[in-house]
């Protein structure tokens, strides 16, 4: 039984919301049913097979081939199974997913992993702004699971993030971890301005020293935190620097802030 494979016929003329695909489990639905799923394309409704060639069998695995940055909400609400995106993903990748895995071979658009509660997203390329962030009005961004970005993340990565782990191999943009509520963000490369602004709690682990932190962060000293060993163990084997952190943990410089908001967040900078 082969995976259900949707091959994008051509770049769609407007953004397409693919959440209907994962609104219910794929398994148990017929290929004909999938082909006939109504999708909104601009101000019209089209059948899914007007945009995609449908092959394979609906089940636990879904492949989207020739994917494009106009395909929004891939894997929204995913509860289990796997989605493999060959190409780029649009905005809201994996929105509110609770389980399963999504891999993207290219880049992901804005708000990937927003409201994510569980499961795993791996993006080989870059992620757009507001990765793992809350959409306006939602009070929590990512709330669980693991996100691993092979490339860079845009601005505001982890804004209002509440739980889970967000790992960015490359660099992160401005205001990383803004208004972060809790959870763990790790960045391998550089970060932009004002990391941790209005952060409440949570951990930002930077493998590369930042150019500066907001004035509402105070230095607390240099420590080998046992907690980091737990993270290292949890991440062991992941591609990139986080999969190879020393098992005994790291020694880090610890900064706490944002003092405007209780100051219980931490930015840890690898020595």
């Amino acid at each position: 039984m082969s995976a259900l494979r949707l091959t994008l016929i051509s770049r769609p003329p407007a953004r397409v919301d693919l959440s209907p695909l994962t609104a219910q489990p794929l398994a148990g639905r017929s290929a004909a049913e999938i082909a006939a799923l109504p999708l909104v394309l601009g101000n019209r409704r089209v059948r899914l097979d007007e945009l995609f060639r449908v092959t394979g069998t609906p089940g636990e695995a879904l492949e989207i081939a020739g994917s494009d940055d106009r395909l929004d909400r891939i894997g929204a609400g995913l509860a289990g199974g796997s989605i493999v995106v060959e190409g780029d993903a649009g905005a809201y990748l994996g929105q509110r997913m609770t389980g399963g895995s999504i891999t993207v071979s290219g880049h992901a658009g804005a708000f990937a992993a927003t409201g994510m509660k569980g499961g795993e997203i791996r993006v080989a390329g870059n992620a757009g702004d507001f990765l793992a962030a809350a959409i306006p009005g939602d009070h929590q961004g990512m709330q669980g699971g693991l996100v691993l970005v092979g490339g860079n993340a845009g601005d505001r990565a982890g804004d209002r993030m509440r739980r889970g782990a967000l790992l960015v191999t490359g660099s992160a943009g401005d205001y990383c971890a803004s208004r972060m509520v809790a959870g763990t963000i790790a960045v391998g490369g550089r970060v932009g301005r004002s990391t941790g602004m209005a952060m409440r709690r949570g951990t930002v682990l930077l493998l590369t020293p930042p150019a500066g932190l907001p004035p509402t962060f105070n230095a607390c000293g240099r420590f080998p935190l046992t907690m980091l060993a737990l993270l290292a163990r949890a991440w062991r084997g992941l591609p990139g620097p986080f999969g190879a952190l020393p098992a005994a943990g790291l020694t880090v410089r610890r900064f706490m802030g944002d003092l405007a908001n209780d100051g219980k967040g931490e930015v840890l900078v690898r020595e």
Binding site: T203, M227, L230
Partner: peptide, 24 residues
């Protein structure tokens, strides 16, 4: 009030500040 929680791989830990560092 200075304690912090941390979830790792689905398990929750507490980090309690003590004089030699953190009691995890």
């Amino acid at each position: 009030g200075f304690q912090a929680s941390k979830q790792v791989a689905g398990r929750r830990y507490w980090r309690v500040p003590v004089m030699d560092g953190e009691f995890l």
